[in-house]
């Protein structure tokens, strides 16, 4: 029996469309999986209630024969994207208590495509770092370890929480941002696919700014096909 959390984005999408399982079942499986790897510190905030509400809505859409390219797919969002009503931190102490009253264009597009939000992931403070060690919310641990060695390794950065949770099968996919390598380097360190599109391909609106002439959002996924599907939904 294949575990739901081992399916790729493409397989999970086809499974929901084909009625093999529901978005709610898939989301519940991921909420359990997130709990099982909580020690990696991938999330700054988990949003299980939001996730279940979004999954229910995805199942309703499917029942009506509707639904976008990522209908019912549970994903994690780097905590640099503003999501309406959910506190955003950018991995910094200085945003204490800030709850965005608006939605970033990238996350808006993902929700339009039917994706489900599992939570906001840990990152280097203001995306400045290559190790996820500069987060105010503590380091993220890479799910990989050296052969015969228990030393905790960095997941890379700045999208360290996003890369580690996808690698640990605690989310189907995650958003990242890349200014100088912040999607691709953690993707490489965690053994998953990380894609930075052309500057300007994804809107920067509602994404907390680091270096505006370089910042670009992109997907972190387990396969190239999944990255292609997700970028189509983000752009």
């Amino acid at each position: 029996m294949v575990r739901l959390t081992d399916l790729t984005l493409a397989q999970a999408r086809d499974g929901i469309v084909g009625g093999e399982f529901s978005a709610q079942e898939l989301t519940e499986a991921y909420l359990t999986a997130m709990g099982a790897v909580r020690s990696l510190n991938c999330f700054i905030r988990e949003t299980p209630d939001v996730a279940m509400a979004m999954a229910t809505a995805a199942d309703d859409r499917r029942a009506r024969g509707e639904g976008g390219a990522m209908n019912g797919i549970p994903i994690a969002i780097k905590d640099l994207f503003c999501t309406k009503g959910v506190p955003a931190t950018a991995g910094s102490h200085i945003l204490d208590g800030f709850t965005p009253p608006y939605e970033s264009t990238v996350t808006h597009n993902l929700w339009e495509a039917g994706a489900v939000m599992l939570g906001k992931t840990n990152l280097d403070e203001f995306a400045m770092g290559s190790s996820n060690m500069t987060s105010y919310f503590g380091p993220v641990t890479n799910p990989w370890q050296r052969t015969g060695d228990d030393a905790k390794l960095v997941p890379g950065g700045s999208s360290g929480g996003s890369a580690a949770i996808v690698a640990a099968h605690g989310a189907v996919a995650a958003t990242g941002t890349d200014t100088g390598g912040s999607i691709r380097q953690p993707g490489s360190f965690c053994g998953i696919v990380g894609m930075k599109p052309t500057y300007g391909r994804c809107s920067r609106w509602g994404t907390i700014a680091f270096a505006s002439s370089l910042d670009q959002a992109g997907p972190l996924t387990r396969t190239v096909r999944d990255a292609a599907i997700m970028l189509g939904a983000m752009a």
Partner: peptide, 30 residues
């Protein structure tokens, strides 16, 4: 370098599209 992608700045109509959100803006004020 001024822009990495060749692009022309396009203009939107000069119309008010936002505003009158005092409560929303102050909601996050320390």
């Amino acid at each position: 370098m001024t822009s990495v992608v060749a692009t022309e700045a396009y203009q939107r109509p000069d119309r008010v599209t936002d505003g009158d959100k005092v409560e929303e803006i102050l909601a996050n004020a320390p």
